[in-house]
């Protein structure tokens, strides 16, 4: 598999689910302050952006290398949801986002972004299990977890930070088909 095949496969994975649920009561009833909207990305309100940022950072956290936020993943997801995906996808995504927040409020008494990393991880673990064990139609929040996970990986490892600081870029200039992995040390992002 080469770079373009890989990205095409990723695109396919992201395009898999379409549905047209109605907007949740939360969305229709809760207008966002326009100045806050401008402060965040183009698609998400500040609160939505904060959840997406915190969520993506738990999927790819900061370690000895930068995590999802420092790699610009939240803005990438904002772009994908707002301009790449369909309107139906965006609706479902925002529904799942709010359902995740509701779940977090119920379990931990706070919005996702305001929870501790440990509480956030517990939410991710619960949603992953829910997705894995689901029968019939998956819940919006379980679906949201998988979409966030895919877009975070895609956004992170195709970013300059993810591809050069965390992983490596396979260099041009020569071809050698038999190199000790130890000489490279990390997987090539591309």
């Amino acid at each position: 598999m080469n770079r373009r095949d890989a990205l095409k496969r990723a695109a396919l994975a992201l395009g898999g689910v379409i549905s047209a649920p109605t907007l949740s009561a939360f969305l229709s009833g809760c207008a966002t302050d326009p100045t806050q909207q401008a402060a965040a990305g183009k698609t998400f309100s500040t609160a939505q952006h904060d959840l997406v940022a915190a969520f993506s950072e738990r999927i790819i956290p900061t370690t000895d290398t930068p995590g999802a936020i420092d790699a610009g993943v939240p803005d990438f997801i904002d772009l994908m949801v707002g301009e790449w995906q369909s309107a139906a996808y965006k609706e479902r995504f925002l529904e799942g986002l709010e359902a995740t927040n509701d779940f977090c409020e119920a379990e931990h008494g706070a919005a996702f972004a305001a929870c501790s990393p440990e509480q956030q991880d517990a939410v991710l673990t619960a949603l992953a299990a829910e997705h894995q064990e689901a029968t019939g139609r998956r819940s919006p929040r379980a679906w949201f977890f998988m979409q966030m996970r895919e877009m975070t990986l895609l956004g992170y490892y195709t970013s300059e930070v993810g591809a050069t600081q965390e992983l490596r870029v396979n260099p041009m200039g020569q071809w050698d088909g038999d190199v000790p992995f130890a000489d490279v040390g990390r997987s090539y992002a591309l």
Partner: peptide, 20 residues
Amino acid sequence: SWMRSLNGYAFGTDLKLELR
């Protein structure tokens, strides 16, 4: 590379290290 993990469930530091 990392694309192999697109359909999995793992997340966090362990996933990041595994994908190295």
